[in-house]
Design a protein around this nucleic acid. Structure first.
Lengths: 197, 197
DNA sequence: ACGTTAGTGACACCCAGTGCCACCAGCAAC
DNA sequence: GTTGCTGGTGGCACTGGGTGTCACTAACGT
């Protein structure tokens, strides 16, 4: 009961244990079929602690997504001014999703859950809202308009749609590199869907 | 207590009362601040009945969205074969959202809630999934590919992004007709975002 | 009178999420 | 070494969404 003597039992460690337990249980039995109590128990802690580490059951799947968004923001800001806007967004998406090979299985597990489980798919809308705001702000900076105007919003929403679709096809095809999937989707989008002609 | 003697108290009538009460209460006090009990009471019925008419609290805001999707599907199917694919999708979106003037206030109320309240925005992802499947199937029919290939999925996701963005700008600007907002967004999308050059 | 059907309300239950409080380790400072 | 603070914790009770079950009632047919 008291691993406290071994490791100082920091919040981060508990959080990491919960995250692994959640990912595995959700994958094995489905998101809805697993209670927060069960995840907590599997991580050798309590329900109360679970909800101190994560705002919601769904958040346990997302890791530190806020940091992810912050990195995306920084990459967009560091983008060369001459680069086309869509190209800069694509590059940022690719770079922020450039995981080491040994991190890919966990990413797959996460994304499969998020795109497969209805409750998690719903929750994703909230998370992606942050992404959209960051991208729209970038577009507004580049075009000199307001971030809530049509074009920045539309670019943010449709590039995110492209990224999500890329993730879906990446999940379906084990041999397709993620960067390739993203480039394919962005190319199609930025050329006005040449495949349709 | 028994309006039954006057009207046969059909499910549809109860559902309609609940929908109105929900829309009004959510608008007045916010989605999270209103309990299902309160909505039920305002509609002169019980909580249990509320959840018999709607799968979830969020569903009370969506009206008969399944019928909406069915109409969209029919319109896409009835599209002339010569028409460009994106054009046919835009036309279908415009047509399916061609409401009579006196229906617009309720549509505004609905959409404002859906796009404003985080819980409803999240739920929208589930609903829009049905739309995406219908649109992807249409694209697949037109291009001869599979509905789960990159292009059909991408077209579905990004046209829906365009439609959603159009709704947002429509909400922000009372003088902008919805059809116009939709056309603007689709034009930008299908031309590969000319405003960015 | 009889069964059938659709709609309903009441109750009990499960589970996500929160506020509160008491507890305990480590780490000062005195 | 006791006093006090801090961070992490578990237990408990409570609110609220959502569901299963059951008994009741009105309408309709036979």
């Amino acid at each position: 009961m008291t691993k406290t003597l071994v490791a100082p039992d920091t919040r981060e460690a508990t959080r990491a244990r919960l995250e692994r337990a959640a990912l595995d249980l959700f994958t094995a039995r489905g998101f809805e079929q697993v209670t927060a109590d069960e995840v907590a128990e599997a991580a050798d802690t309590s329900r109360r602690t679970f909800f101190r580490c994560f705002e919601s059951k769904a958040d346990a799947v997302w890791g530190d997504f806020a940091a992810h968004v912050r990195r995306l923001d920084a990459m967009l800001a560091a983008t060369p001014a001459g680069q086309p806007v869509l190209g800069s967004i694509c590059a940022a998406y690719v770079e922020v999703n450039a995981y080491a090979d040994d991190a890919l299985p966990m990413l797959r597990q996460r994304m499969r859950l998020i795109l497969t489980e209805p409750a998690l798919l719903a929750h994703s809308q909230v998370r992606y809202g942050d992404v959209d705001r960051v991208v729209a702000a970038h577009v507004a900076r580049r075009t000199g308009g307001r971030p809530d105007a049509l074009v920045p919003r539309l670019v943010a929403a449709s590039t995110r749609a492209a990224a999500t679709t890329a993730f879906e096809t990446w999940l379906d095809d084990v041999r397709l590199p993620l960067a390739r999937a993203l480039h394919d989707a962005f190319d199609e989008l930025s050329a006005g869907f040449p495949s349709l002609r």
